[in-house]
Nucleic acid binder design. Structure first.
Length: 391
RNA sequence: GUGGUAGUAGUGUAACGGUAGCAUGGAAGCCUGUGGAGCUUCAGGCGCGGGUUCAACUCCCGCCUACCACC
């Protein structure tokens, strides 16, 4: 893997990740394809959307269909028919979302704890050896150790793989967060050692943890960036309006020559802000998840702003007879053909195409947004771009 | 026409002589390394009239409506 920074404006930067004959222009948005598919879309849609890279999930794919099957196909591209570079997530986040997150609320954000109580039982437990999971399908017990995670990710064959890490809930105190960050560091060493030993040509990112604590974030960043990773991911919990502050703490510790991926972030405002802190890539379920709930992303031209989170809810009654395009200022093929009224109807009728149309538009929107961000930085207009969007 | 049974949110149902629940549908909101058609909130009802009673959706009578049976 090769990474080149082409242009900088303040902390924001435009670059290129070259990997296995693919070129990914950064900053890039990486849609989530947990089970080797973007929900409701086909490989044709994905290629048409000019999506540059996707991220699949180790835990889910190892249970279904099983890593061996994907390996026998020669990797996830051949298995899925999606001719795009892939990242694979290590399963570390599932240790959280299926473990403590299942009890305390899955959010990574401090301010969302109270409104997301959960009665679900935990099916993941963490030990020094690794994460003990139960299958969501048959409750069978599986150990996902750092070595096992990497082995599975080798089988899945993504172009960029991630080291196994431990993500805390936002409510974690200092000691708990410290323990997780230190374990993440030890696991990172094990992942890297195993990866080098297997002589895989895949790129590997190490993950920075440390939760809401500056000292722990800085220590984690120092430790992880001192290892021979190809790039770095920033994971874990963030406080209210403190994510940018966290990124600010980390900025001086990050390797200037290597790409930085912000895990699980994808709200429009968060992406624009994070780019100014030097983030090169993002992955997030948001565009597709909110799409399936009937939210349509819109630009400032169409009335999008911080307050409405750059979206309209197409299921609202006020759109029932609205003949205008889904988004009048979007030139994606869905907006060119379909009216708000029709999409409103499809959602209320629970027609499957509603999810496909909304997901397609929202991902088109994300690609356009990232393209405009890169363009703005290249022309020294990113500051103005940011003002236009965020005021 | 006679007899029986039943009428409770838009729909389907529950309970009770003293605050009418549930499901679904409706409305609004929510989802940040996807356990998902999920979660939260709101709106919405005792067929009509009379009687008994301190109090009636509940008991009684009549009417209306529906279904069943019989002429």
């Amino acid at each position: 893997m090769e990474f080149n920074v082409i242009k900088k404006e303040g902390g924001a930067r435009v670059g290129e990740i070259k990997i296995d004959d693919f070129v990914v222009k950064t900053p890039a948005f990486v849609p989530v394809a947990t089970k080797a598919a973007i929900k409701s879309l086909t490989a044709f849609d994905i290629e048409e959307l000019m999506i540059q890279m996707l991220i699949a999930n180790t835990y889910h794919l190892s249970l279904r269909p099983g890593a061996e099957i994907i390996r026998e196909f020669g990797g996830i591209q051949k298995f899925s028919g999606i001719r795009k570079p892939f990242m694979s997530d290590s399963g570390g986040f599932q240790a959280f979302s299926l473990g403590k997150g299942a009890i305390l609320g899955r959010s990574k954000f401090e301010y969302e704890i109270e409104k997301k109580p959960s009665k679900e039982a935990s099916i993941a437990k963490i030990s020094e050896e690794g994460v003990y999971f139960r299958s969501i399908y048959d409750k069978s017990l599986h150990l996902l150790s750092p070595e096992k995670s990497i082995e599975i990710q080798h089988d899945i064959g993504a172009n960029i793989i991630l080291a196994l890490d431990e993500c805390n809930p936002p409510s974690a105190d200092y000691d708990e967060t410290k323990e997780a960050a230190e374990r993440t560091e030890r696991w990172a060493k094990r992942c890297l050692a195993f990866h080098k030993e297997k002589k895989s040509s895949q790129a590997i990112y190490g993950i920075i943890q440390g939760g809401l604590f500056r000292e722990l974030r800085e220590r984690s960043a120092k430790a992880i960036t001192s290892m021979d990773f190809d790039g770095f991911g920033i994971g874990g919990s963030f406080g209210r309006n403190k994510m940018y502050e966290t990124l600010g703490w980390l900025q001086p510790f990050l390797d200037k020559e290597k790409p930085v991926h912000l895990l699980g972030i994808g709200a429009i405002e968060d992406i624009i802000e994070s780019v100014s802190y030097g983030i090169d890539s993002f992955d997030c379920v948001s565009p597709t998840m909110i799409g399936r709930a009937g939210y349509i992303l819109i630009t400032p031209e169409s009335g999008g702003n911080r307050k409405n989170k750059f979206r309209i809810k197409i299921t609202n009654n006020r759109f029932a007879g609205d003949k205008s395009a889904i988004d009048e200022n979007c030139d994606c093929k869905m907006c060119k053909r379909y009216s708000k009224s029709y999409l409103n109807h499809l959602f209320k009728a629970k027609e499957f195409s509603a999810y496909a149309i909304a997901s397609y538009h929202n991902l088109y929107f994300m690609e356009k947004l990232m393209n405009d961000i890169r363009d703005a930085i290249e022309n020294n207009r990113f500051k103005r771009f940011k003002e236009k969007w965020l005021g």
